[in-house]
Design a protein around this nucleic acid. Structure first.
Length: 294
DNA sequence: ATCCAGGTATGCA
DNA sequence: TGCATACCTGGA
């Protein structure tokens, strides 16, 4: 098969709080990203931006990373950004209303140190455009094909996701060949729009949440849920509260919101959980993934 | 075989 | 504003 890169030794990675192996798994493979695979027991391998790394949690909750030798130089700073290493998520979690919300309290206790990733905005947009009415396994397959067929090779056998300017050069037919189905049209149209509006994706930093979200919703195939995912996982906007069918069911069940629309639930979530509502959403999601049938 | 999947856009009351 | 329906397609 493809030649294997030569990997660095394991290096320490500093985070503000420990991250035990099961919680690391939830962070990397719990629906925020679709680009991580379990390489060996407790060893995750993933790619984003121009990075390829392996990650594992040591017994004490400290993290170790390794990278292909050729990519090792930039890995520490890229990892720090990706894992939002400057953010203390335990502190943000403590700001949530767990003292008066028993369900939230048990979610926090079940996944100590749960983090929100800070992924590249463009990649996040692409991945969540592919996510509409698909299961995680299938989304991983789609973006894996997009990377392999249309993304630059970073190291032997490892490809990055195509940039939007690269995607603009890919036909809708070839996107469909990556199993995107009707999402191929959304990706093609968004690529065309972005090609005609240079810098459009970079103009979000200073916009208020509602404006940034409205702006994202101008893109073909982007509605409220996808916009919230892009803002939360790709822009560090923790007030975003994505409501998918699972969160809709979870909120109905745990908070008595039967019959509420996604938009109503999103509004409730932002009001009830506050400025870190998106972190609460991730905890609720993790809980349902683990205890959904209870 | 038939139905559904981590949504969105569109067309009608 | 609110609700139903189409949109692709692999897998249960």
């Amino acid at each position: 098969m493809s030649p294997r890169p030569s990997w660095t030794d394991w290096q320490p990675l500093a985070l503000p709080e420990p991250l035990a192996a099961p919680v690391l798994a939830e962070v990397l493979d719990g629906g925020q990203s679709f680009r991580w695979t379990l390489e060996a027991e407790g060893v995750w391998q993933g790619a984003w931006d121009d990075c390829v790394v392996r990650l594992k949690s040591a017994g004490d909750g400290s993290l170790r990373w390794a990278a292909p030798q050729t990519l090792a130089a930039t890995a520490p700073s890229k990892l720090a950004t990706y894992l939002a290493a400057s953010v203390s998520f335990s502190r943000r979690a403590d700001e949530l209303p767990w003292r008066s919300d028993a369900h939230l309290a048990r979610c926090l206790a079940a996944f100590p140190g749960l983090r929100l990733l800070r992924q590249p905005l463009g990649e996040t947009l692409l991945c969540f455009l592919c996510s509409a009415t698909k299961q995680i396994v299938q989304i991983r397959q789609m973006v894996g094909l997009l990377a392999r067929r249309h993304g630059r090779e970073l190291a032997p056998g490892f490809h990055r996701l195509p940039t939007w300017s690269e995607l603009a050069a890919v036909s809708e037919e070839n996107l469909r060949a990556c199993l995107l189905g009707f999402r191929a049209r959304h990706v093609a149209q968004t690529a065309g729009f972005l090609a005609g509006h240079p810098g459009w994706l970079e103009g979000f930093a200073d916009l208020p949440y509602a404006d940034a979200k409205a702006r994202l919703c101008e893109l073909p195939g982007v509605g409220e849920k996808i916009a919230d995912c892009v803002l939360l996982f790709g822009a560090g906007r923790f007030e975003a509260f994505p409501v998918d069918v699972w969160i809709l069911k979870a909120m109905a069940r745990r908070y008595g919101l039967e019959g509420w629309t996604p938009r109503q639930v999103a509004h409730f979530g932002r009001a009830h959980f506050g400025p870190a509502a998106g972190l609460a959403q991730q905890y609720l999601f993790a809980w349902e993934r683990a205890h959904g049938r209870d």
